[in-house]
């Protein structure tokens, strides 16, 4: 399958070149750093809610943990922003890598689960704690699976790329 020409156009744009090649400490690695911090916020906060629903620290009141969703959405916002910037820097490398779509699918599923948990488990103010836990148990398990999948697929990206740049296959 031919690599779309638009990837090349993006790669040759000023912002893409700056993101890749700038020696400034606010260049590529700064964005990667915030991508990591965003990940730790969204997955860390979500994992705590998941673990609590699955029985860890069972005397921790569940309802106030709703506030953690604010941290999760902040983390997600950071990562959508920084993710788009990283994609601007290396469009061909990311979008020709099947693993990139695996990662996005895991994130999609994890965020969908996170939203459902927010609305249906912690959002329903009429539910008792026991009812919240009964309702959230399956979601919590899948949430952990999806996030582990997303992080694992993310770390695999650099090992599975087929192209470094437009017209430059990896391993060539």
């Amino acid at each position: 399958m031919a690599v779309p020409e638009i990837f090349n156009t993006i790669e040759q744009s000023g912002i893409s070149i700056w993101l890749r090649e700038s020696q400034s400490i606010f260049g590529f690695y700064f964005i990667l750093l915030f991508h990591t911090i965003g990940m730790s916020l969204v997955v860390g906060a979500n994992a705590v809610v998941d673990l609590r629903i699955l029985g860890v620290a069972s005397d921790l009141p569940l309802r106030p943990l709703k506030r953690l969703f604010g941290i999760m959405w902040t983390g997600l916002g950071i990562n959508v922003t920084t993710g788009l910037l990283l994609l601007t820097a290396y469009p061909t490398k990311a979008l020709t890598n099947p693993d990139f779509y695996v990662k996005l699918s895991f994130i999609g599923l994890a965020v969908f689960t996170m939203r459902r948990m927010n609305l249906q488990v912690l959002g329903g103010s009429s539910l008792s704690e026991a009812a919240m836990i009964a309702k959230g148990k399956v979601m919590a398990k899948w949430s952990l699976v999806f996030w582990i999948g997303a992080v694992g697929a993310g770390r695999l990206l650099s090992e599975t790329s087929r192209y470094f740049f437009y017209g430059h296959p990896a391993g060539g």
């Binding site: 990940m39 730790s40 997955v43 860390g44």
Partner: peptide, 13 residues
């Protein structure tokens, strides 16, 4: 990375 997430989620919280 998973270790980092566990640290930030629990100690950070």
């Amino acid at each position: 990375f998973l270790g980092l997430i566990l640290i930030v989620g629990t100690v950070g919280l």
